[in-house]
Simulated assay, not measured.
Amino acid sequence: MWKSCLAATLLLATLLVPLEGRACATCACGDPTLTSMGTEQPFAGRLRFANQVRAWSLTSGQNAEDAASLRELRMDLSVAYAPLPWLFLSATLPLQTRSLQQVSLSRETAWGPGDMEVGAKIFVFRDRDFSPDHLVGVLLGARLPTSPTVRDAQGLPLSLDAQLGTGSLDPLLGLSYSTFRGDWSFVASATGYLPTRGREGFRAGASLRTTLAAQLQPAPRWALRLAVDGRLEGPSDQRGVPDPVGSGLLAFVSPDVLFSPVTDVVVELGVRVPVLNLLHGHVRQSPILQASIAYDL
């Protein structure tokens, strides 16, 4: 009898020992909304990895005179971690391949790492701790000069447009708002960049990038998202000489499909279609094709 009592006591003591609790990202944040990288709800200890691939092209100048065509395939490797319920730390490293072709048919090609971007998103308001309906965040960060100077076979630097980054330190400041209404969610954000002078004395123009998005999620595994993305950029300069080409306003309509094949994995497929082009210098932007996958660990 005493052996049975001892065994029962040990079993009860084992069950009372606290263990580390683990839950999926949806359970931990209290909201089943599928989110792309950068729009997720925070909770302490959230760790997220993402891989986004984008393809686009851009042509500037007159076709028969000075046209130049730039094509890029880019893969962004991202990681985000929330050490606190109100703080997200993130880093994104782009791996790129670029091809620049002049009207003379001369071509420059570059591939390698681009300029890394790091940031801290501070959530300054949430209407409740668990499963909030309203979130306001402030983004602080910078784009770092991590891209190497790419050179041709003779050891000469490629032109600035063919380089994989500006090689400058560019501070950024942003503000975002998210709200969740049952099957619907909405996101509005604005981020400003203030570039410094970088490679060969080039300084990109200050820019403002905005997003206004609505998402409908009729089922736990998939959602439809429609956004209007805008980019307003000032003129650049090289060693103090202004260059207005490429500056101005560019706006996209961006439909996306998100689906979750398994728990904690979100796949996103979409396209950015330019609908308003007020850029200087006969600049024509192609649609931007993109695919991404995000995983919560």
Rank of each mutant, 00 (worst) to 15 (best):
G30D: 03
G30V: 10
D31E: 09
D31I: 02
P32R: 08
P32K: 06
P32I: 06
T33Y: 05
T33V: 15
L34V: 14
T35H: 07
T35W: 05
T35D: 13
S36N: 13
M37G: 00
T39Q: 09
E40T: 00
Q41R: 12
Q41F: 00
Q41D: 07
F43K: 06
F43I: 06
A44V: 07
G45Q: 10
R46Y: 05
L47Q: 04
L47G: 08
R48Y: 03
F49Y: 05
F49C: 01
A50C: 05
Q52H: 07
V53P: 00
R54N: 13
R54S: 09
A55W: 01
A55G: 09
W56L: 09
S57D: 15
L58P: 04
T59K: 06
S60G: 12
S60Q: 08
Q62E: 11
N63C: 12
E65H: 15
E65N: 14
E65S: 12
D66K: 03
A67H: 06
A68T: 15
A68C: 10
S69K: 03
S69V: 09
L70V: 10
L70D: 05
L70M: 12
R71G: 06
R71Y: 09
R71Q: 13
E72W: 01
L73T: 01
R74D: 14
M75W: 05
M75A: 13
D76I: 00
S78V: 10
S78H: 07
S78G: 12
V79A: 13
A80H: 03
A80P: 02
Y81E: 14
A82R: 09
A82N: 10
A82V: 09
P83S: 05
P83C: 06
L84H: 03
L84C: 02
L84N: 10
W86N: 11
L87Y: 04
L87N: 08
L89D: 03
